[in-house]
Amino acid sequence: MKKVGILVGREETFPESIIKSINEKGASKVTAEMITVGGIRLDEPKRWDVIIDRISHEVPYYRAMLKRMALEGTYIINNPFWWSADDKFFNFALAAKIGVAIPKTVLLPQQEYIKDITSESLRNLEFPIDWEGIIDHVGFPAFLKPHDGGGWKNVSKIHSLEELWTEYNQSGKLCMTLQEGIEYDQFVRCYCVGKEKVLIMPYDPSKPYLSGMQYVNVENYLTPELHKRVEQDVITICKALGYDLNTVEFAIKDGIPYAIDFMNPAPDAELASVGETNHRWIVDNMTDFILRKLEEGFDTPEYRWSAMLNPPEKQAKVKAPVAKPAAKKASTKKAGK
């Protein structure tokens, strides 16, 4: 019996729905459950074949626990090692290099530092910052947002240099980015499952976050050509990042989809927030993906220690017998003269 564990935070409907769906479709071969963990030993045995992670970005203990589970061969959705190393600014730079349209973006030094960082610690840092040069490059309006964050937390829309300084001076120890604000004609948020299945959802970011008002139903919202490009960009991004579950947001201006947010390895899937249709889609497609991969086998992440823990089979000490040469015939002819 294969086991799937769900690691969750405050959400309710998605964990309940995915557990029910896997248990119903698992045909007694796969079972899903909420995981329970406490003190994790160095020799902790494998307890789940797959774990869907929805909260470790907020709870360091969970992240460390998942890394330990991965060492036993548990497949984690999403990979805790890459998620730990990932950040949004790197993602923007990577996506731009692989052909995805990205707004102009600048990484900014922190406004504050931890206690033991002094001016001597920052001798490599340009001071003062060339604010005018940054603004000339990015322009207004712009968005000041953390280089590694989510949920629209600590995000400010900026219209002037004075506004930028005010918001930046309140950012504390957060490392921020300043990104060109795309005055969009259309906006979409896209689910992606298994780096192959994509659901494009018309989305209104001006509505309150998690209000249930952001997802709007509009038929034929994108032209076929634009729909195809958005879908391909989503798959390209998720393949590059290695995420099996993600959302990608696009601000579309003059027919160009600008990817503005796509580090969402635990995307919102609550029924009250995303609506029945979108909730059902993500539950069904995640279920199908997990069941299919449990049967076919997951693509094993390439960890540097894997070859050391699982060396190739040693060559047999006794070599296979070598076939003897055929016996010469009695009537073998001598070389002619």
Rank of each mutant, 00 (worst) to 15 (best):
I35H: 03
K25N: 13
L7I: 01
S56A: 06
H279T: 02
K239G: 00
E112Y: 06
L226N: 08
I117G: 01
K145I: 03
M286R: 05
K337Q: 14
L309R: 11
N264M: 13
H57N: 15
V274T: 03
V138W: 04
P301W: 07
I51Q: 08
I260N: 01
V100N: 09
A93G: 02
D116N: 12
P224Q: 01
G172E: 15
L7E: 11
M69Y: 13
L241N: 01
Y113H: 05
N79G: 14
F187W: 06
F92K: 02
E219F: 09
A96V: 00
K207R: 13
L199M: 12
D185E: 08
D284A: 15
Y113L: 01
H57M: 12
D53H: 14
K173I: 14
P202C: 04
V198S: 07
L125Q: 07
N285R: 03
L125N: 02
V218A: 10
G181I: 05
S21M: 08
L271N: 04
K328P: 08
I22R: 09
I76T: 06
Y62I: 09
K324E: 09
E162K: 14
A330Y: 12
I102G: 04
N217I: 10
T74V: 06
K115R: 07
I158G: 12
Q170R: 13
K88V: 02
I129C: 06
E44M: 12
L108P: 08
C192L: 06
L294M: 15
H147E: 05
P321M: 03
I51D: 07
Y61M: 07
N124M: 14
K46V: 15
D53S: 14
V283C: 11
G73K: 03
E33K: 06
T31A: 12
Y62H: 15
V193A: 02
A266Y: 10
I35C: 05
D43G: 05
